[in-house]
Computed example of a mutant assay.
Amino acid sequence: MSIATSRIQPCLWFDDNLEEAARFYTSIFPNSSIGHLARYTEAGPGAPGTVLAGEFTLDGVTFRGINGGPGLVFTDAISFSVTCRDQSEVDYYWDSLVDGGQESVCGWLKDRFGLSWQIVPTRLYELVSDPDPRRARAATEAMFKMRRIVIADIEAAVDAVPA
Rank of each mutant, 00 (worst) to 15 (best):
P30L: 00
A38S: 14
A43H: 11
M1I: 12
L127P: 13
A139I: 08
V158W: 02
I28W: 04
S104H: 12
D153I: 09
D86Q: 06
P133T: 04
Q9S: 14
T5H: 13
S33R: 10
F113P: 01
S88T: 13
R39V: 12
G101T: 03
A53H: 15
T26M: 12
L72S: 00
S33M: 00
D132G: 10
R134Y: 02
L115G: 08
G69C: 10
R137L: 10
A142C: 00
S32C: 11
R112W: 03
K110C: 00
V120L: 13
D111R: 05
G68F: 00
F80V: 15
Y25M: 09
P131R: 12
G100M: 05
T41H: 06
D59K: 07
D15M: 10
G101W: 03
D15N: 15
V82L: 10
K110F: 15
I149A: 10
G60S: 06
R137D: 13
F113A: 07
P45F: 12
L109T: 05
D86F: 05
V158E: 07
T122W: 14
V90W: 07
K145M: 02
A53I: 07
I66V: 13
D159Q: 12
G69N: 02
P70R: 14
S79T: 13
T5L: 13
P121F: 05
A139T: 10
R39C: 09
F80K: 03
R39K: 13
K145P: 13
A163M: 11
I34T: 06
W94Y: 08
R147Q: 05
E126I: 08
V98G: 00
L115C: 04
A22P: 09
G54T: 10
P10D: 08
